[in-house]
């Protein structure tokens, strides 16, 4: 089991305030880590930091060599502009290979093959020539995962991926992520508000409130005060 990302006592923040303080955690191969917390608790800042868009202001962040080379597979929150973007599924998926192509102005045959393979992996090969904006929300998410997998097949960071999906698409989506995690051993780091659905499948929970409120297994999380409040158990909200 190789460790992909290690944070030890890391602070992330902007000019004059830290949004994440003293965070220690690690993501190893095959992990399924869920990051939860209220709005403004530093979840998005953490994601930015892990992607290398924000330098830690304290502590040490270690990212495995192979992730540094091609980047982490990233699934950002969807923007309104994307929902009516004129692009084919193939164009979107292929753009995931961008970090591999470096300064070359075109994609190589290997990169195109990779895009094709990832579309097949996610069952969207038949949609190759379809327009992204005409797909359903669930299909769009599959396209974005395929794109992320073109960057790396080791680790995915998903930022509130189920926002705007209907309930059955949400369940499909979780099944898909679980399959990628279990069968292909892709490490998952998912930021989500959907706590109730997630405790059932994650292997680790990280509850952020600027500082770490909880970091451990879902089983232990249920027993904590924070966990009970979030999951709305019998004696929650007291």
């Amino acid at each position: 089991m190789s460790v992909l990302i290690t944070c030890s006592h890391v602070d992330f923040g902007y000019e004059n305030h830290d949004a994440v303080i003293d965070l220690s955690m690690e993501v190893a191969e095959g992990d399924y880590l869920c990051v939860i917390g209220a709005n403004g608790s530093g979840k998005s800042t953490l994601v930015k930091g892990l992607l290398g868009l924000l330098k830690p202001t304290g502590g040490t962040l270690t990212v495995a060599e192979e992730l540094r080379r091609t980047g982490i597979g990233y699934l950002p929150q969807q923007t309104a502009a994307q929902r009516d973007f004129p692009a084919t599924v193939y164009e979107v998926v292929l753009s995931g290979a961008l970090s591999r192509s470096g300064n070359r102005p075109f994609y190589s045959a290997a990169e195109k093959k990779l895009a094709q393979a990832n579309m097949e992996r996610l069952g969207i090969a038949s949609l190759k020539r379809h327009c992204y904006r005409e797909l359903s929300g669930g299909q769009q998410q599959r396209v974005l995962i395929a794109r992320a997998l073109c960057a790396t097949s080791r680790m995915l960071i998903l930022d509130e991926p189920t926002t705007g999906l209907d309930p059955s698409a949400i369940q499909d989506f979780y099944r898909l992520v679980r399959k990628l995690n279990r069968e292909e051993h892709i490490a998952i780091l998912m930021v989500t508000h959907d706590v109730a659905n997630i405790v059932g499948q994650a292997s680790k929970i990280l509850h952020l409130q600027q500082r770490v409120l909880f970091y451990g297994t879902p089983g232990d999380y249920r027993k904590t005060e924070a966990g009970r409040r979030y999951l709305g158990g019998e004696d929650g909200w007291n």
Binding site: L51, G52, L53, G71, I72, Y74, P76, Q77, T79, Q82, F85, A87, V92, S95, G96, L98, S99, R147, A148, A151
Partner: peptide, 12 residues
């Protein structure tokens, strides 16, 4: 154009 955050994350 399609996705600024993703492009940033891949090092553009």
């Amino acid at each position: 154009t399609f996705d600024e955050s993703f492009a940033k994350a891949t090092g553009v």
